[in-house]
């Protein structure tokens, strides 16, 4: 875990457009002062010029010495925002104000007191499955008076985000492999109220019919109804049970949806893909294993 420290060689500073206008005003003031030999005008000219120079130091010192390091990010499904937590630390005795963290169109304002550290969550859109590398992060600031701005070299966070395929519900959940499970599934679809076991916040992949809509109206939050534990039931989620005319991504999306449903129903499930099978299991580890297999399907990256 290497820190990115903004040293003097990582920091660049230039006047902003307003800064050039500021220089223009100073030149005009110089012309006035020289033409009328007006000493107070000279005085004000030098006061403003010195303010400009002090502001330049302020801008430079506002950013120099900041430490950046990245933290692992949670996996998300395609379509959701990948969130890269970046830790910004100010190890110095002076406060840092109005520092912008810019990352590929996303930006966040950060204020740090002396010796404070803050976590910025960079949100990047996901458009395809697989590993998503965080775009380079740049720190920029026009503090204090906007006539200078500084920017840093690019910081490339080492952590990447695993993006699972987008769950798509194109085909019904497959029949359970065992007879008892099949009965149980049909049983569940009929009488939901009986195996009601509680409510939980909505997670992507939850079935729409499980969403408790009245709560949405009341609390503005999506809540799904949880069903009773169903250990013992098992199902095979197979690539080969899908129609062959489906596209590869659609198949992966459908499998992804099924994995979610199976996990939500707490079934034991296996995932069958060409040349690869995740054996029957349940639990979080298995769930994520299956999803990452789907995410990295036919890609050359190692899991």
């Amino acid at each position: 875990m290497s820190d990115f420290v903004i040293g003097r060689r990582e920091l660049y500073i230039l006047p902003t457009r307003i800064g050039w206008y500021y220089a223009l005003i100073l030149i005009a003031l110089l012309a006035i002062a020289v033409k009328f030999d007006n000493q107070p005008a000279f005085m004000m000219l030098f006061v403003l010029a010195s303010i400009g120079m002090v502001a330049m130091l302020y801008t430079h010192n506002n950013v120099i010495g900041l430490n950046l390091n990245s933290k692992p990010s949670r996996s998300v499904f395609v379509g959701e925002n990948a969130i890269f937590p970046i830790n910004v630390e100010n190890k110095s005795r002076s406060q840092r104000r109005a520092v912008w963290l810019v990352c590929d169109g996303y930006h966040q304002l950060i204020n740090l007191r002396a010796q404070e550290q803050q976590e910025a969550s960079l949100k990047l859109p996901t458009i395809k499955r697989g590993y998503l590398n965080c775009a380079s992060v740049i720190i920029t600031s026009r503090f204090p008076i906007g006539i200078f701005f500084c920017w840093t070299k690019r910081f490339n966070p080492e952590h990447r985000c695993l993006v699972y395929p987008q769950p798509l519900k194109l085909h019904p959940f497959p029949e359970q492999g065992e007879a008892s499970s099949a009965k149980s599934l049909s049983h569940r679809s009929i009488s939901n109220a009986e195996d009601y076991s509680g409510m939980k916040p909505y997670q992507p992949g939850d079935r729409l019919r499980d969403v408790h809509w009245p709560s949405l109206a009341k609390t503005q939050k999506l809540v799904t109804i949880e069903h009773q534990d169903r250990t013992g039931d098992s199902v095979s989620l197979s690539w080969f049970s899908l129609p062959p005319n489906m596209g590869v991504e659609d198949k992966l999306s459908q499998l992804c949806q099924w994995v979610i449903e199976a996990d939500a129903a707490d079934l034991r499930y296996q995932l069958e893909l060409p040349n690869h099978t995740e054996q029957f299991a349940s639990g979080d580890a298995h769930y994520h294993k299956c999803l990452s297999t789907l995410a990295l399907w036919e890609s050359h990256e190692a899991a």
Binding site: A31, V34, K35, D37, F42, M43, F46, V47, A49, S50, I51, M53, V54, A55, Y58, P144, I145
Partner: peptide, 24 residues
């Protein structure tokens, strides 16, 4: 604070900046 920090600089500039005559 910025102004106070700028004032010593301004005073130096004021005393040492060459006074030229010109007409614009």
């Amino acid at each position: 604070t910025i102004l106070v920090k700028a004032l010593p600089l301004a005073v130096l500039l004021f005393f040492f900046f060459p006074r030229i005559h010109g007409n614009f």
